[in-house]
Design a protein around this nucleic acid. Structure first.
Length: 312
DNA sequence: CTTAGTCAAGGGGTA
DNA sequence: TACCCCTTGACTAAG
C-alpha cells in the first residue's frame, strides 16, 4: 500500500499547474510555463519521497492548451530531457503515478466533436506518461461520462468508443465510479466488457451506492486489476465535508474514520489516493497512521536497501 | 496595490 | 430557457 494525494503541494512553495489565458497565448509563454511546471513537479516528487508519500497524481495542467489546436509548439522534444529525468526519479523512488483528465473528457458523448477532443486530451495524458517512460501500471482514470437520457445506450457507447482508442491509451485507462450517474455495478459491467480495470472511489460509493458494502465493492473492483499489467488496484478516498453539501470533499482527513477504513479493508492491498483539500498535510497524517498497518509497512520495508535508499 | 470578473473544454438538476 | 452545482484557483483588467 502506497498513500498519496492529487496534483498540488501547498508546502514546497511552487505551483506545478500554472497556466494563462488563451488570449495571452504565445510560444514563449508555453515554454516558460511548462519549464516552471516540470521543475515544480520534480520538487514535489522529492518532497513526497522524503515523506514516504509514494503515490501521486500528476496534474492535467502540466502543459497549457496541450490538446488545443492553438498549441503547435513541440514541447515533447523541447523538454525531452526534463521528462526523462522526472521519469527516472519516479522509477528510482518507486513512486506510483496516476492522472485524471477533467470532466469534459467524455468518450461516451453523443457529440462526435466532444469525443474527438476527448481523444486528443487522452492522447496528451498518455504522451506525458510515455515521455517519462512509465509502464502501464501508471493509470489514467476517467468516468463513464453522461447519461444522455439513456443509460444503457450510453454505457454501450462507452464500450464501443473504448475499442476505437489508440492502444497506448487503452492500456492505461481505468474507469472510476462517480458520485451521481455511474455506480460501482455499472463500472464493473463496463470493466467486464472492455477489460479495463475499475478504480474504486470510496467516497463516491457512499453518495452513489449500490447494495454492496465498501469491502465488497473493493474486493470486486480488485479482481479487475491484472497484477502484472495494471499493478495493484488504485483506490480513491475522501470523506464528506462537515457542514458542506453531501458531495463536497473534506477539508482535512478524519483520522478515526480513516483508521476504521484501514481496518475494514484489511488485508486487501491497494494504493490509496486521498482526495482531500489540504493535500500533503492529510497525506502525511495518513502515512503516520498507516505506518502501523502491515500492508503499508511491507511496501516501505521491502524497498529499504534497494536502489531507493542507496544514495550514499 | 487590491479587487472583482473571468477563464478551452460538459452534464444534469431545478426553477 | 436560465442558472447553479460539481471544484479551483489564478489570471487579468479595472479601479
Amino acid at each position: 500500500m502506497r498513500i498519496g494525494y492529487p496534483c498540488i503541494n501547498m508546502t514546497v512553495g511552487c505551483k506545478g499547474d500554472r497556466t494563462f489565458r488563451l488570449k495571452s497565448y504565445s510560444e514563449w509563454r508555453v515554454r516558460e510555463t511548462v519549464k516552471n511546471n516540470l521543475d515544480c513537479l520534480l520538487r514535489v516528487l522529492r518532497f513526497n519521497e522524503e515523506h514516504n508519500i509514494l503515490f501521486f497524481r500528476i496534474t492535467s495542467d502540466l502543459v497549457p492548451f496541450a490538446s488545443h489546436p492553438v498549441n503547435t509548439f513541440n514541447w515533447q522534444d523541447y523538454f525531452r530531457s526534463e521528462f526523462d529525468d522526472i521519469g527516472d526519479f519516479i522509477r528510482k523512488s518507486r513512486i506510483r503515478i496516476s492522472m485524471h483528465p477533467d470532466q469534459f473528457t467524455l468518450i461516451n458523448s453523443v457529440d462526435k466533436d466532444i469525443f474527438e477532443r476527448s481523444c486528443k486530451e487522452l492522447a496528451y495524458h498518455a504522451q506525458i506518461l510515455d515521455l517519462m517512460n512509465l509502464d502501464t501500471c501508471t493509470k489514467i482514470q476517467i468516468h463513464v461520462g453522461g447519461v444522455y437520457k439513456n443509460k444503457e445506450k450510453s454505457m454501450n457507447r462507452f464500450v464501443k468508443r473504448y475499442f476505437r482508442l489508440d492502444s497506448s491509451i487503452q492500456c492505461r485507462l481505468a474507469v472510476e465510479n462517480d458520485d451521481r450517474l455511474y455506480n460501482v455495478a455499472d463500472c464493473l459491467k463496463i470493466s467486464g466488457e472492455t477489460g479495463m480495470p475499475m478504480l474504486f472511489d470510496v467516497f463516491h460509493h457512499s453518495v452513489n451506492r449500490t447494495d454492496t458494502t465498501v469491502n465488497g465493492a473493493l474486493r470486486l473492483s480488485s479482481k479487475t486489476w491484472n497484477l502484472k499489467t495494471d499493478g495493484i488496484p488504485m483506490v480513491d478516498y475522501s470523506s464528506q465535508r462537515i457542514g458542506g453539501s453531501p458531495r463536497q470533499h473534506a477539508e482535512s482527513i478524519e483520522l478515526r474514520q480513516f483508521k476504521n477504513f484501514l481496518k475494514e479493508t484489511f488485508p486487501v492491498d491497494f494504493d490509496l489516493m486521498l482526495e482531500i483539500k489540504d493535500k500533503e498535510k492529510s497525506a502525511i497524517k495518513a502515512v503516520e497512521v498507516a505506518s502501523r498497518d502491515s500492508r503499508f509497512l511491507k511496501t516501505i520495508e521491502n524497498w529499504s536497501g534497494s536502489e531507493r535508499n542507496d544514495k550514499s
